Simulated assay, not measured.
Amino acid sequence: MLSINPYFNFMGTSEEAMTFYKSVFGGEFTILQRYKDIPGSEKWPVEEQDKIIHISLVTPKGHVFMATDALESMDQKITAGNICRITIHTENETETKKLFNGLSAGGKIEMPLNKTFWGALCGMITDKYGIQWMLNYTYPTNK
């Protein structure tokens, strides 16, 4: 594994919350993507276009906090127990598949492993104990 990070889910307050965490922990936003910036965004209601699909805060010590806004139009709701997901950044596809298959045994696959528009192999599950996980392998870029 390359790293493990908390991934917070908010109902429209990701930007506010992450700005607060930045004021507490320091650091910089390395990624800030809004729903309106991704392919297919025209499918979401106008009032959800400026919500955050992904934001990453890297602290001065290199810790990474990530977050997203849940969308009511996708019937996503935040309740106690689903406000945080543990994200594992893996080293290769093989490790990603192994961990995904292991953690999903007896659990619920929420997003099957698939290649994403951001250049990663990614999937999400809730394990049989109710812990939410995201597995993400970022493909190397040719420079």
Rank of each mutant, 00 (worst) to 15 (best):
T30D: 06
I53S: 10
M18P: 01
S41I: 10
T94W: 03
E91S: 08
E95F: 07
E16Q: 12
N9M: 05
T30H: 05
S104V: 01
T13R: 12
P112K: 10
M74C: 14
A80M: 10
G81R: 05
I109W: 00
T79K: 14
G107R: 00
A67M: 02
K36M: 08
E16K: 13
F100P: 00
G40S: 12
L99G: 03
E15L: 11
I52M: 04
A105Y: 13
I83N: 15
T68Y: 06
S41W: 14
H89L: 06
L113E: 00
G12D: 11
T94P: 00
F29Y: 08
H89D: 10
M74G: 10
I31H: 05
G81A: 06
G12A: 10
N92Q: 07
V64D: 00
K51A: 01
E47Q: 11
S104P: 04
F8S: 10
R85T: 15
D75W: 05
F8I: 13
T30A: 03
P60W: 13
L103C: 04
E15Q: 12
G26R: 09
T87R: 13
I31L: 04
K51V: 00
K51C: 01
E15F: 09
M74P: 09
Q76V: 01
F117N: 07
V24K: 10
I86M: 13
S56N: 08
V58R: 12
S14P: 02
E110L: 15
E28N: 12
F29V: 02
G40V: 07
T116H: 03
K61S: 15
G26E: 11
T19G: 06
D69Q: 03
T30V: 07
S14K: 02
L113I: 04
Y35A: 04
T59P: 09
E93L: 09
T68F: 07
N92F: 08
H63W: 14
Q76Y: 02
K98E: 15
K108S: 11
T30R: 11
I88D: 06
T96H: 03
D75P: 00
E15N: 07
S56M: 06
V24H: 09
V46P: 01
I38K: 08
G26Y: 11
K98S: 11
N114C: 14
E16G: 01
D50H: 12
K77P: 05
M74A: 15
F29W: 06
K98R: 15
L99P: 02
M111W: 13
K43V: 04
M66A: 12
T90S: 12
D37Y: 08
A67Y: 04
H54G: 05
M11A: 15
Y21V: 02
N101L: 10
I109F: 00
F65K: 04
L103A: 03
N101K: 14
M74R: 14
E47M: 03
A80Y: 14
R34E: 11
G102I: 04
N9A: 03
G81F: 09
E110V: 04
P112V: 03
H54F: 13
T90G: 06
F65R: 07
